[in-house]
Design a protein around this nucleic acid. Structure first.
Length: 492
RNA sequence: GGGCGCGUAGCUCAGUUGGCAGAGCAGCGGACUCUUAAUCCGCCGGUCGUAGGUUCGAGCCCUACCGCGCUCACCA
């Protein structure tokens, strides 16, 4: 016979049907989870098991299948936990033995028998009956080397999860992170809310949006680039402590730190400012690390990070001054800042405005050095259209960004609640748009109307959940912590 | 978008100077009552990413394209 493996599996599927066996039954007869079954018997001796013969039934996917003449072993896996099953020809009907011999790796079965221990000491289910739960028609990745092809790991993540322990570990870790996040915020009285993904006007960040269309309304809509403007409306409405964990969509480049859709936590606390949000951020990240890893000390890309509080708080002015010798506040317009940069022996580049040059200096000379958790604070107002002005310097805002591992993992500020100032900021952004800045914020009259109804002093915080998970999972690429990262369509 | 690298059997990978496309695992047939990467014997399995070109002859050299990775640029 020269059939390939798929054909062979199809043939066995047909044979089952011919024999009157449903290869995809709906019901699974009574069984115990493998994890739960192992617990009471893990340390019980072969002699005791032999004498007691505890009856048991388990269900799982066949991970390995080894057959001898009159003896057969297979390993079942259920929810990540494995257990060996054996069939002895003299103990089962010829039908059951024959059926079991023809099972494929990847099939799901239920096995019923007695808890037992082999001569090699392995806890095993000595089966008397085996039934089909679901046929697997495709061969699974090789048992020894697993699945290494990066593209296949992303496109067919289920294979990655099945064959690479690390993929499973990361998925579990990510889930525990969001659980811990909800626990942390819930304990502090924050309410989880949901706001629109489809928005008539996008806002809350500087980014190009994805555009879509509602057919019946004949309305252009955008996939949100941020939840911010809706969450603030809720604060105005008296929901004083709220958060949302959801996807944002930004129509930009893809890199190991950027996916077109990513998970953002945004939370807002009325009667708080950005200092309070720094306290909250430190406590939150520490709590999450402690919850999922049991420690705030983590290894990230070869460096030990201490995520416990307190984190240094450095103004963006001081950070740039320290790394470049340039004082952005002493050189408070574009030409003088450019000159200061040149005087420091560095290239000011093509930055069109003072604020952008500040941002460039920060990105080039400071950001890569922020390995240990650090708050960078007090950004130029020009870069922060939704943040409240600093009472000490109107050129700056009460804003901070937390950095870990050289990555920006969030953004936060004392929220701008002066509707007239907010209108001016929008208008400034409007001019930038006219000058070709596609990422500048569009005017949002509905949001301004909401602000005019009064928003309390409020602290707002956004955390890039994917990047935080990267740090905790020691992942070098965002795609490792996103189950289905965006890829180009498969070519031919 | 630029640069560099990669793409060979279902999976993991070899493939020499351009000279008949290979191994292990998986699969198929057989042996086997304690294996757990089972073992042993036999067999099947290929659009060498795609399309062109050079050559007597291309997995290998050249060109274009597709996909993936790294990196730079762009970008929170």
């Amino acid at each position: 016979m020269s059939e390939n493996e798929q054909d062979a599996r199809r043939a066995r599927l047909e044979a089952l049907r011919q024999a009157g066996v449903d290869p995809f039954p709906a019901r699974v007869a009574e069984h115990t989870s493998i994890a739960a079954l192992r617990v009471p018997w893990e340390d019980v001796s072969a002699e005791v098991l032999e004498a007691e013969m505890p009856p048991a039934a388990i269900a799982g996917r066949i991970k390995a299948h080894r057959s001898f003449g009159k003896l057969l072993f297979m390993t079942l896996v259920e929810d990540g936990v494995a257990m060996q099953v054996c069939l002895r020809k003299q103990e089962v009907t010829p039908e059951v033995f024959d059926f079991s011999k023809k099972l494929d790796v990847g099939d799901f079965v239920r096995a019923e028998g007695f808890v037992w221990r082999t001569k090699k000491g392995e806890l095993t289910l000595d089966a008397r009956d085996v039934t089909m739960l679901a046929k697997c028609l495709q061969p699974l990745p090789e048992k020894w080397h697993g699945l290494a092809d990066v593209e296949t790991r992303y496109r067919q993540r289920y294979l990655d999860l099945l064959s690479n322990e690390e993929a499973r570990t990361t998925a579990l870790l990510r889930s525990r992170v969001t659980t811990a996040l909800r626990q942390f915020l819930g304990e502090r009285g924050f309410l989880e809310v949901e706001t629109p993904v489809l928005q008539p006007i996008y806002g809350g960040a500087a980014a190009r949006p994805f555009t879509t269309h509602h057919n019946m309304l004949d309305q252009q809509l955008y996939l949100r680039i941020s939840d911010e403007l809706y969450l603030k409306r809720l604060v105005i409405g008296g929901l004083d402590r709220i958060y949302e964990i959801g996807h944002n969509f930004r129509n930009e480049g893809i890199s190991k730190k950027h996916n077109p859709e990513f998970t953002m936590l945004e939370c807002y606390q009325a009667f708080a400012d950005y200092r309070d949000m720094m306290d909250l951020t430190e406590a939150m990240v520490g709590f999450i690390a402690e919850s999922v890893l049991g420690t705030t000390s983590v290894e990230f890309q070869g460096t030990k990070l201490e995520l416990g509080r307190p984190w240094p708080r450095i103004t963006i002015r001081d950070a740039i001054l320290e790394k470049t010798g340039v004082d952005m506040l002493a050189a408070a317009d574009l030409p003088s800042l450019q000159q200061a940069v040149r005087d420091a022996g560095k290239d000011p580049g093509e930055a069109p405005t003072w604020g952008v040059l500040v941002d460039d200096l920060f990105s080039d000379y400071v950001e890569p050095t922020l390995i240990q958790p650090t708050f960078i604070t007090d950004h130029p107002v020009e870069l922060s259209p939704l943040a409240k002005r600093s009472s000490e310097d109107p050129r700056l805002v009460e804003r901070f960004e937390p950095f870990i591992g050289g990555m920006e993992i969030g953004n936060a500020f004392s929220e701008l609640n002066d509707p007239d100032d907010q209108r001016q900021r929008f208008e400034t952004m409007g001019k930038a748009r006219e000058q070709g800045d596609e990422e500048a914020h569009p005017m949002d009259e509905a949001f301004l109307l909401a602000l005019e109804h009064g928003m309390p002093p409020t602290g707002g915080l956004g955390i890039g959940v994917d990047r935080l998970v990267m740090v905790l999972a020691d992942a070098s690429n965002l795609r490792e912590v996103i189950l289905f990262p965006h890829l180009r369509p498969e070519g031919d």
